[in-house]
Design a protein around this nucleic acid. Structure first.
Lengths: 233, 233
DNA sequence: TAAGGTACTCTTACGGCGTAAGGCAGTCAA
DNA sequence: TTGACTGCCTTACGCCGTAAGAGTACCTTA
């Protein structure tokens, strides 16, 4: 049963923090963040669970590292954007960067949850925010307004929102739709709203919102509001 | 060792789904959500872990139930609010309710995380949103605008935001502040901003933001933007 | 009063988790 | 040659969620 000890046939790439973290991201991409366990991660890199601990301190450290990897990916993407940001142009500069960051999260749907549970600030994330503040400064923001702006944007600054009614991938829709319909009397406004939306967008069995459109709506609402404050300051 | 089997001295309140859920909230309030395990929850209600399963399906069900309890608490609080909401008054009506809901979350700091991980919509939450839509309708919102509004508000509609740099209770502040200061060259904008904030608000060792103020800033920014759309519609 | 059903709680046990403690092989400097 | 250091592995512990099924108390019906 020498499945593991065959140094000849399988050259065995040495472990490293970076390799472990990349494998963790891959595992989460493929099987979801809940299936990221130290044992499975070890298997992914062809080692035993305890071997990982030579390269990472503990599982929390893996999660911290994952954030760095994703934030690095974001910085790489937004780093390629080079548009004017002076004066009124700040808005589209920020907008473009946020939407570019969002695309990274769309590739890693499990990532927002991980970001949200990290208390500590990691260098790549800090770097991203620094650049964002820079754009606002170009637009004439005071530090105070830029600070408020970051709070107002919240996680939207990084490209994601936490939807309260996340319909997932349409799973369980009929069920909850039926549930809502059956409560039409107690929920007149909500049911009315949903009926109209379903009517206007008939392709939906109530799928039910276009996330990208809604994200941009909220983003623009905030950016426009900030822009007005910038001008009247 | 008849510590448990003494039906006389300890009358033993019967278990129930409601009692289990309330105990779960209490446990989370006192020791944090991460210490909410079926065994500890059982201990809290004076029973064995497996006994809980007669009243709840599984741990996920407990978390769903917790959301219902908290949302119920919110509905109770906002239900006592009765202010005009016709026309322009919609804004302060919504504002008041959101801030009232926020107070409930301030009493249960662990709750946002639980809300965010629930995919399914629970009746009390749905009821809350229905009332919110009702206020917007009073203000003259189309269903379409109300729908956009809910997305724009996101979790803010329920009274919380996910802060990207949550300083917790000031823990680890000096450390991260020092880290940032040492990176002043790479992070000119961020460090500049923080220096000014620290300067303007000298009591802070960088504690560092007034969450309530920032929450209201973002909320008002969004509500004002929506109000303008309402008027020009 | 006896018998059986129902509602609730418990005991036992299993597999999976994160990780502490320490062993062992390969490499490299003295 | 030796001994330290690096990198990976084995073993084991305590905690977790929960499946299976055995009591136990009470209530109904005869």
């Amino acid at each position: 049963m020498a499945t593991r000890n065959e140094p000849r046939t399988e050259p065995r790439i040495p472990l490293s923090r970076d390799r472990v973290l990349r494998a963790a991201v891959k595992l989460a991409d493929e099987s979801g963040i809940e299936s990221l366990t130290m044992r499975r991660l070890a298997e992914e890199v062809g080692a035993e669970a305890m071997s990982l601990y030579y390269h990472v301190a503990k599982k929390e450290d893996v999660l911290d590292g994952i954030v760095e990897v994703i934030a690095g990916e974001i910085n790489e993407v937004v780093g390629r954007i080079d548009v004017p940001s002076k004066g009124a142009a700040w808005k589209s500069a920020v907008r473009q960067r946020v939407l570019a960051a969002r695309e990274v999260f769309l590739r890693h749907p499990w990532a927002p949850r991980v970001f949200e549970t990290r208390a500590d600030v990691s260098p790549p994330v800090v770097q991203y925010f620094d650049a964002l503040i820079g754009l606002m400064r170009d637009g004439g923001f005071s530090y105070d307004l830029a600070h408020h702006a970051l709070h107002a944007l919240g996680s939207r600054a990084l490209g994601f929102t936490q939807e309260m009614f996340d319909p997932g991938d349409g799973a369980g829709d009929e069920e909850s739709t039926a549930m809502l319909e059956s409560m039409a009397e107690q929920l007149p406004h909500l049911v009315g709203m949903l009926r109209e939306i379903a009517h206007d967008d008939p392709d939906s069995t109530l799928g039910w919102c276009d996330d990208q459109t809604e994200f941009e709506f909220g983003l623009d609402l905030i950016l426009d509001g900030l822009d007005r404050m910038r001008e009247t300051a």
